[in-house]
């Protein structure tokens, strides 16, 4: 870890044009357990593996509901995510207060992007050590955004961040075309499958270690959207069972028939 002399603060470039503190912050994201997000034409879904530090401890919270129309999942420093999500909650409440409007997702994500960026340009500040996937719906439909400690934000069709997330991303890339027309359940199942790819050898998806967040647009004729709902414990069994080891084949066949 004794990389060089240019990593003591986030305002000094290395001669190669890099800011090491920001890059180290991205490493913090990679230490976090994996989270996956994906969107269809009607839904945005977040799935996450929760970790418990030890047998006796509870599981770390991975998905946070921000407002009726959006939620986020995090990988990295949970306390930094809490600060950001509190800020997002405030932004979204004030949009509802001042305009009576659910805040557009792009605007909210831009605002945390700007916050994170200032941390990379002021001496004595520390970049956020967390990456976020923000999923929600607004008047333009469902969205998924990725946020990185550098302040980078990007709209994604599907994304995975956290430990060993490359495996999940590979799955997502392979199945990308299918997502747009997926129904709610199919989308969650795709998310869980992607998540499974990234699991360590000895790990399995269980109702204990798995979180799912779903949000959807207003169905035809309905007055309100399908609000962001977080599923934990027994509530995720319905989907976890579908991607369990034994069920794999039948589920796969079912999917084939659908497409």
């Amino acid at each position: 870890m004794f990389r060089n002399n240019y990593d003591n603060d986030s305002v000094t470039f290395s001669p190669q044009g890099r800011i090491f503190q920001v890059e180290y912050a991205s490493e913090a994201v990679k230490q976090g357990s994996v989270v996956v997000g994906l969107v269809s034409k009607t839904h945005a879904v977040l799935v996450a593996v929760k970790r418990n530090a030890e047998e006796l401890s509870s599981y770390q919270k991975k998905i946070i509901t921000i407002d009726e129309h959006l939620g986020l999942s995090l990988a990295g420093l949970a306390s930094d995510a809490r600060v950001l999500s509190n800020f997002m909650k405030q932004q979204s409440l004030s949009s509802r207060l001042i305009y009576g409007r659910a805040i557009p997702l792009s605007r909210l994500v831009d605002s945390i992007g700007d916050r994170a960026q200032t941390n990379t340009q002021h001496y004595g500040k520390r970049p956020y050590g967390v990456g976020l996937l923000v999923a929600g719906v607004d008047e333009l439909g469902p969205h998924l955004f990725e946020f990185q400690p550098s302040g980078m934000t990007q709209e994604m069709a599907a994304s995975a961040i956290g430990a060993r997330s490359q495996m999940a991303r590979t799955y997502l890339e392979r199945n990308l075309e299918k997502f747009a027309d997926c129904g709610r359940q199919e989308l969650v199942v795709h998310g869980l499958k992607a998540l499974k790819e990234s699991l360590a050898q000895d790990k399995e998806l269980t109702v204990e270690n798995c979180s799912v967040g779903v949000v959807g647009i207003r169905p035809d004729g309905a007055k309100t959207i399908e609000g962001f709902k977080l599923f934990d414990g027994q509530d995720v069994k319905q989907w976890v069972d579908l991607v369990a080891e034994g069920a794999e084949e039948t589920a796969e066949e079912g999917m084939e028939v659908d497409t």
Binding site: I98, P104, S106, D110
Partner: peptide
């Protein structure tokens, strides 16, 4: 910036 979002009359009135 963000495209496609507008304030409708209700939003405007609240503001």
């Amino acid at each position: 910036g963000s495209t496609g979002h507008t304030l409708n009359a209700q939003n405007l009135h609240t503001y």
